[in-house]
Deep mutational scan, measured.
Amino acid sequence: AVSDRLIGRKSVVMEAISPQNSGLVKVDGETWRATSGTVLDVGEEVSVKAIEGVKLVVEKLE
Score class of each variant (00 low, 15 high):
Lys10Gln: 09
Glu15Val: 13
Val13Trp: 00
Leu24Trp: 12
Leu40Cys: 15
Glu30Thr: 09
Leu6Thr: 03
Ala1Arg: 08
Glu30Arg: 09
Ser11Tyr: 04
Glu62Gln: 13
Val42Met: 05
Ser3Asn: 11
Gly29Arg: 05
Asp4Ser: 12
Ala16Cys: 11
Ile17Ser: 02
Gly43Val: 00
Val58Lys: 01
Arg9His: 09
Ala34Val: 02
Lys60Leu: 07
Gly43Leu: 04
Glu44Ala: 09
Gly43Phe: 04
Leu56Ile: 05
Ser36His: 01
Ser18Leu: 05
Glu44Lys: 04
Glu52Cys: 14
Gly37Ala: 14
Ser3Lys: 11
Trp32Ile: 04
Pro19Ser: 06
Val48Ala: 01
Ala50Ser: 10
Val48Trp: 01
Glu52Trp: 11
Ser18His: 07
Val57Leu: 08
Ser47Ile: 15
Leu40Ser: 00
Ala1Thr: 12
Glu59Tyr: 06
Ile17Leu: 04
Arg5Met: 08
Ala50Cys: 10
Thr35Trp: 06
Gly43Gln: 03
Thr31Ala: 07
Ala16Asn: 06
Glu30Ile: 11
Ser3Gln: 10
Asp41Leu: 13
Val2Met: 14
Asn21Ser: 13
Glu59Leu: 05
Thr31Asn: 08
Arg9Ser: 09
Leu56Glu: 00
Ser22Pro: 14
Val42Tyr: 04
Val58Thr: 02
Gly23Tyr: 09
Gly8Tyr: 02
Gly23Ala: 01
Thr31Cys: 14
Ala1Gln: 13
Ile51Leu: 08
Ser47Asn: 09
Val57Asn: 05
Val12Arg: 05
Gln20Thr: 13
Gly8Lys: 04
Ser11Gln: 03
Ser18Ile: 06
Pro19His: 05
Ala50Tyr: 07
Val57Arg: 09
Ile17Pro: 02
Lys26Ile: 14
Glu15Tyr: 07
Val54Pro: 10
Val54Asn: 15
Ala50His: 07
Glu59Lys: 05
Ala34Asn: 04
Leu56Ser: 03
Lys49Gly: 03
Leu40Phe: 08
Gly43Ser: 03
Lys10Cys: 15
Gly53Glu: 04
Val2Ser: 13
Gly23Glu: 02
Val12Leu: 09
Val57Ile: 11
Lys10Pro: 13
Met14Glu: 07
Lys10Ile: 15
Leu61Cys: 11
Asn21Thr: 13
Ser11Asp: 06
Asp4Ile: 11
Ala16Phe: 08
Val54Cys: 15
Gly23Pro: 00
Gly37Met: 13
Thr31Lys: 07
Val25Pro: 01
Val12Thr: 09
Lys49Val: 15
Ser47Arg: 15
Ile17Arg: 00
Leu56Phe: 02
Val25Lys: 00
Val48Pro: 00
Ser22Gln: 09
Val46Asn: 00
Gly53Met: 03
Val2Ile: 13
Glu45His: 10
Leu24Cys: 10
Asn21Trp: 09
Leu24Met: 10
Trp32Gln: 02
Glu15Lys: 12
Leu6Gly: 02
Gly43Lys: 04
Val13Thr: 02
Ile17Cys: 06
Gly53Thr: 03
Val25Ala: 03
Val12Asn: 04
Lys49Met: 13
Trp32Arg: 03
Val48Lys: 00
Gly37Arg: 12
Asp28His: 06
Val13Asp: 02
Gly53Lys: 03
Arg33Lys: 11
Gly43Trp: 04
Val27Gln: 02
Val48Leu: 01
Lys60Thr: 05
Val54Ser: 14
